[in-house]
Computed example of a mutant assay.
Amino acid sequence: MQKKQNLTILVGIIALTTVTRLDSVMAPSIVKIQQSFPHADPTQVESIASIGDVASMIASFIFGFLLTKMTYKQAATIGLSLLAAGGLLPLFIHQSVSQLIFFALVVGLGSGAITTVLPSLSAAFYQGNRRSNQFGLNVALEDGFAMVWIVVGGFLASISWVQNYLVYLITLVALLLALLFVPNVKPSDHSATTSKQDQANHWWLIISLILISFFVEVLVAVMSNKMALYLNQYQIGGPSTAGQALLFVRAASIVAGVLISFYRKALGNYLLAAGFVSIVLGASLFLSVHTFWSSALGAFLIGSGGSVALITIPFLLSNLASATVYPIVMGSFSALTSLGFAFSAWFFKYTAPLFSSNSLTGTFIAMIVVSVLIILVLVISNLQKRATPAN
């Protein structure tokens, strides 16, 4: 009976992982949308692929609190319904850029809901190493599916930007699976998360970990903005080459998700610090060697470090938060990581000039400096060990 329940919950979790990265699936169609609406503001058109991050951040906060009052199934159903509506209605309603922006906002709201439900559900039904492994599996599946949707979306976009929205048909499949397999219980009804701990220590550790996750996204997201510029500056390749190199960031997430159990055993309480060491090595590679394969390896190292951190931090937070608090904590985590992604370009716009007049060189040096500072904080404070319960 227990095995059957675990299997049904796993199917529900996998259904949610298929759609968590759909909010940026329209990126391949931005140029064609601009061509279809030549008088539209280019910034508005570009926001179709990015405004979902803002909505996702808001939804993460909202659903973090709502999930304390509703069941996992109810929250997942609302999130998936928003994703389906925002992604599929543009197939029929697409007379203006404003309409497309509105639907992108709806998609972002749905995405924010799912990214809050998913880790809360995983933490509620798994314990110990199994929970950590599940978080790793979630990230691997999320990025694996994201790569599939990027390829499918690019193919559909080559036919028509309207057809690109057909990718969102997968939300209907996920919605059906969620209705069948996501448990209809509240976080407080069934949870494997820890009981309430000492409040001062508890909240200090939670806030510290969430702030670190914010900087993880700031550091990793800059790759999306700088890769094409980097390859162009060193005459390595064009936009298509940049896309190939950036795939190594996604691949790193899949590898990290699959091997997280091995990483935990090998690195123990220094796993988080090792993630930032990986980012330092990747950024150093970009500074010292200028070839496609060194760029791909650098992207892989930076992606690996970021993924290890974003798998480990939710696991550590689940050790610190009670069943009723954890959804709010994870809502804050999802919101801050979304903010980190959106804030990344601005952060390096102002920090890179502090280290070099060359913006690319300054960016990678700033990545190294921030990572080293976080490594020192982690090692000196022994933060990961303090957030890990004794066996």
Rank of each mutant, 00 (worst) to 15 (best):
G12N: 00
R21S: 09
D23A: 13
S24N: 08
A59W: 02
S60I: 04
F63V: 11
L67V: 11
T77I: 14
L88A: 04
L89C: 12
H94W: 02
V97R: 02
L109A: 14
L109W: 05
T115M: 12
V117D: 01
L118K: 07
L137R: 07
G144H: 10
M147I: 15
M147H: 09
G153A: 10
Y165K: 02
L166Q: 11
P187N: 07
S188K: 12
H190L: 15
A192V: 00
T194M: 08
K196V: 01
A200C: 07
I206R: 04
L219F: 13
A221H: 09
A221Y: 15
Y230K: 05
Y230Q: 13
N232M: 09
Q233P: 06
P239T: 14
Q244E: 15
V258S: 05
K265P: 00
A266V: 07
S284C: 15
F286C: 04
S295M: 06
A296M: 13
L297N: 00
S304M: 15
S307C: 09
F315I: 12
N319G: 09
A321E: 00
T324C: 00
L339R: 07
Y350L: 10
P353C: 09
T363P: 01
V372D: 10
L373Q: 12
Q384C: 02
K385H: 10
